[in-house]
Amino acid sequence: MSSLTSYLLLSSLLFSIGLAGALTRRSAILVLIGIELMLNAANLNFIAFWRYGPDPAALTGTMFAIFSISVAAAEAAVGLGIILAVYRHSKTTDLDQMNSMKG
């Protein structure tokens, strides 16, 4: 098994753990963190392909990872703001209890 394969396997495992967390946890905060983990798995893929690719000096993988981290940071800020607003409205962060759209 080559090194690139092991990095890709690690990142797919990270993605699956993040997906499992986002799909199964009840707390809205942890669901958001699961989405962050999936974005991180994508970043690991960018860096691994950049390092093992034919032209590492072109820096495209690094740039893509940096922009992806910035987008993930913006997403985390907006997501946690939405969680705070929903909590103020319905007094819970339990997703099983957030089952009405206009209540």
Partner: peptide, 29 residues
């Protein structure tokens, strides 16, 4: 993987900012 800049950005943004943001969200909810 020899991506020093991305590694330190990861520490600054995720270990620093996103974790603190999540702790604040836990505290406020």
């Amino acid at each position: 993987l020899d991506a020093q800049f991305v590694g330190f950005t990861q520490i600054l943004v995720y270990v620093g900012a996103v974790a603190i943001l999540a702790v604040f969200a836990i505290m406020m909810t």
